[in-house]
Structures are given as structure tokens and as C-alpha cells.
Computed example of a mutant assay.
Amino acid sequence: MNIIEPDLNGKQLRIGIVQARFTNEIGSEMLKVCHRTLLDLGVADEDITVATVPGALEVPLVLQNMAASEQYDALIAIGVVIRGETYHFELVSNESGAGVTRVGLDYNIPIANAILTTENDEQAVARIEEKAADAAKVAVECANLVNRLLEEQFDDEDE
């Protein structure tokens, strides 16, 4: 049995981050935590690119363009959608989540989805640290895993 162990070494990885600015105080804090965690994992500051968009619905489009550039090993989506009094919460939550997933699958690139969906501001604030740090770890671990699997695939084709 061949077991691939998790690899959280971010050296040599290029990471793209898309942050939704709606509810910007929370998103900005998440970006700080995510950035700090990526640096702690060994990702070089010059290998991190951050783009901001108005809201969660715009995140997938920019992720798609980043993925299409083939300049990144992994991407991270950051933002927060807080329930309001209308159905708009469900629409934004569902569509942004589906869009993020589709981009990752269509372009075969890991995307850590750290777009919070909460009932209120307090729930969002309580999740900033953990969700943002987790997103950085997921991006690095999955980038290393996908890169390794691709290397093994090419090695098998060469034999």
C-alpha cells in the first residue's frame, strides 16, 4: 500500500487569493490570518497574489481567470455571506460555493473555500481565525498532493 502523507511545506508554491470585500472588516481579518499562515508554512510573500472583488458572487470569475493563467499551484476564496431577511443569502451562498467548486474541478486546481456563511456577524467573527488558517493549510497541502500525483502520472507515462 502506498500512502501519501500530508505535506504542509509551502516552499516553491504559488498561491492566489480572491477576497470578497462585502463585509470587508471580516474579510480583511481573514486575509491577514491566511497570509500569516501561508508565510508560516514557507510560502514566499512574492509568491502570494491577492485580488479583491465586490462580493462572493464575483469570486468564482476571478478564481477562474487565475486558474486559467496556470500561474498558481492553489487558490483560496475568502469572504463572508451573512443571512439577511430575504432569500438572497441562499442564492449567494449556493451560487458562490458551486462556482468555486466548478472552477477547481474544471481547471484541476485546489481551491480552499473560506467563504463563511453565517447567521450573524458574531458567528462570522468567531470563525475568522480558524477558517482562514485552515484555508491556507488546505491550499498548501492540496497543492503539494496534486503536484505529486501529476509528477507520478508523468513518471508512469515515461516508463
Rank of each mutant, 00 (worst) to 15 (best):
E122S: 12
V92K: 01
E46H: 08
I111P: 01
L105V: 14
I109V: 15
D47W: 01
A139E: 05
L116I: 10
L38T: 09
A124V: 07
T37F: 11
G99M: 08
G79T: 03
A132Q: 06
I115G: 06
D7E: 12
H35L: 11
I128Y: 02
R21A: 00
P6Y: 08
I78Y: 03
C34E: 12
A126M: 13
L57M: 00
K32L: 13
I82N: 10
C142D: 04
A133S: 15
E130T: 10
T86C: 10
G42F: 02
A136F: 06
A74M: 01
R127F: 05
L13R: 13
G42Q: 07
V18I: 03
I78Q: 01
G79I: 01
E90K: 12
G55A: 02
T101V: 11
S96V: 04
N94D: 14
Q71C: 04
A143N: 09
D45H: 08
R83V: 00
F89Y: 15
Q64T: 03
A132V: 05
G84M: 06
P6I: 12
N144R: 15
A135F: 02
D158H: 05
R36Y: 01
L91M: 15
L149Q: 13
I3V: 13
V50E: 00
N2W: 04
G10D: 12
Q64G: 13
I128N: 04
T118W: 05
A112I: 10
K32V: 13
K32P: 06
G27L: 06
N24G: 11
K137L: 05
G10T: 07
N120M: 09
D7C: 13
D40W: 00
V103F: 03
R127Q: 14
L105Y: 08
Y107P: 10
L63W: 08
M1C: 08
G16P: 13
I82E: 07
S28E: 14
L63T: 09
A56N: 00
T52C: 02
P110D: 12
V81Y: 03
Y107D: 03
T37N: 11
T52R: 04
E46M: 00
A126R: 13
I115S: 07
E5F: 10
I48Y: 05
G97M: 03
A51N: 08
E141D: 05
G97N: 13
G27S: 15
E130N: 12
K32W: 04
G97C: 08
V33G: 04
E90Q: 13
H35S: 11
L91E: 09
T86Y: 10
V50F: 01
S96H: 01
G97W: 06
I3A: 09
L61E: 00
D47N: 15
I78A: 07
T49N: 02
R83I: 01
Q153R: 14
T117F: 03
Q12I: 06
D134Y: 10
H88M: 02
N144Q: 07
V18T: 06
D106Y: 03
E25A: 09
T37V: 11
A135E: 04
R14G: 08
A51W: 00
E29K: 15
L8C: 03
L39M: 11
V80Q: 06
V50H: 05
L38I: 04
N65M: 07
E122D: 13
I115Q: 06
N2K: 11
V59R: 00
E141W: 04
E130P: 02
